[in-house]
Simulated scan of single mutants.
Amino acid sequence: MKAPNETKPPKVLVSVDMEGVSGIVHTSEVNPDRYDYERGRALMTAEANAVVAGVLDAEPAADVLVADAHGPFRNLLPEQMDRRARLVRGKPRPLGMVAGLDGDIDAVLLIGYHARAGAGPGVIAHTMSGEVLDVRVDGRSLGEIGLNGALAGHFGVPVVMLSGDDVACAEFEELVPSAVGVAVKEAIAGSAAVTLHPEEARERLRAAAAEAVGRRAHVPPLVLDGPLTVEVDMLSPFSVDLALLVPGVSRAEGGRTVVFAAADFAEAHRLVLLLVQLASIKPG
């Protein structure tokens, strides 16, 4: 666990996804090509700002990076962001949803996250892409919460807070039981939830962010030591065929699963990101 450095202000990374934001329940609200997306991105930006404010309530001198971590990574409205934070946006980029992460970061907060693929009744639950059915690391199923949490752990950085629906919070609690989880909605089905009023959610997020950053020294990083065996279940046979073009990737028993070995979690994460991108290619 990293010991806090009292001689310099903390550096905090806030990774913001969209499906777990209060008020959002349907893919039309998170898809740039759909009619309700502008409302979704406004709600996402407001929750990001609430968390930035909470971090700075606890640590007024903190250096806060906000990573836009949904879809195209160009959803947060830059002109509406808290000017005290810096924004990481655009893709492709190293480390994906937690771009900006390194050993100098003191704490990571995952905001607006969703449960992993197959975790019903999680709202818009999936893992990276609709083409990915599951990712298992040494037999343990990990969604975006676990994959990004373990990548932070590779750098020795704790994930101190997560927000999303109650299913996502339960997934996070299993991985990092000493961290802070904020359920801003209660899942009913994949596209339905009982959700807090957005302003109520933001008040809770601000208070929780201050608490989480203040107790970061008491939250251990999520560390998965290598070497690691990674299995990825793909939706389509074509995605499997593309994955097999990557050196070191082979087909596992069952036909839909590919497997590879990684020396450490950073290597595993990079290969998973690559397989997800390959899966976005459609047959010509």
Rank of each mutant, 00 (worst) to 15 (best):
R251V: 05
D33F: 07
R206K: 15
D233E: 13
R83K: 15
V21D: 02
G190S: 13
L224F: 08
D166I: 07
A261S: 13
P220A: 13
A243F: 00
A201K: 05
G71Y: 09
R116H: 10
R41K: 14
V180R: 05
A50D: 01
A150R: 08
S129V: 11
S280T: 15
D102G: 11
L274Y: 09
A209M: 10
D102V: 12
R202Q: 08
R83P: 02
V167Q: 03
V108C: 04
L87R: 06
A183Q: 05
H26S: 15
E211H: 10
L77G: 01
S250C: 10
M161L: 13
A115R: 10
D57W: 03
R140A: 14
L278C: 08
M161P: 03
D36P: 03
G122C: 10
A115I: 01
V21T: 11
K282T: 14
A192C: 12
A183I: 00
E174R: 15
H114W: 01
D68C: 08
L278V: 10
D225N: 09
P227S: 07
A262N: 09
D57Q: 11
R84K: 13
E253M: 07
M44Y: 09
A209W: 02
T195A: 09
L77F: 07
V55A: 06
S236Y: 03
A85S: 14
G130T: 07
D241G: 12
A50T: 04
A207P: 00
V21N: 06
P198D: 03
